[in-house]
Nucleic acid binder design. Sequence first.
DNA 1: GCCCAGGTGGGTA
DNA 2: TACCCACATGGG
Length: 224
Amino acid sequence: MPIRKGTPLVAWYAALRAGYGAQSWWPARTRFEVVLGAILTQGVAWSNVEQALRALRRAGLWSPDAVRRASRARVARLIRPAGYFNQKALAIKGFVRFLHVRHGGRLDRMFRTPTPELRERLLELRGIGPETADAILLYAGGRRSFVIDAYTRRVLFRHRAIRGSEGYEELRLGFEAALPRRAPLYNEYHALIVRLGKERCRRSRPLCSGCPLEPWLSSGGPRK
DNA sequence: GCCCAGGTGGGTA
DNA sequence: TACCCACATGGG
């Protein structure tokens, strides 16, 4: 089942934007830092990611080339605070290898690739799934690829806009079909969803009062 | 000590 | 498709 017909995704955006203001994401200073963060954040809290990013920076592993020259074991040791460090070290090394071989180690060259093709190439890499690929495309490359994450699913589910069994692509295409095709909008919308999720839509003890989307809860209310 | 956090990949039926 | 599980650390 796709996103329920008539789900006011545009109105929700307006309410979130009015309630929270501009989020100006992704929390990173360079495009490569976005890529690192996108991989490191898989399945963990952002506070863990910050510790791992600090360790990489302090160690001088702050460019694709520096990371490419470092051993996988060293990368793994540095990113240990982010959890799943062996798998994430493989993913990071795999990405910088791909970047080196296919694009001379330069992100600006990589982003000359047409979006659909680049998305496919990224998804072929070990440890880069749809959410990570879309985060790289949108937040490092400014491409129109909507990011679906656990918060997005939770917000949609609690507002009865999805059943919960929908696939990633279904939700991504659902958002992209419902919204004006503008990367800055995708960027801001996902950032606002994360803001909402962190503050109001955690898995346990969900808070509703004062939430920017509270007006829409009356049409059904949360499921549990 | 227990639950949870901005996923991914591999396996089974 | 629909589950299961491993992967691992840090904060509340």
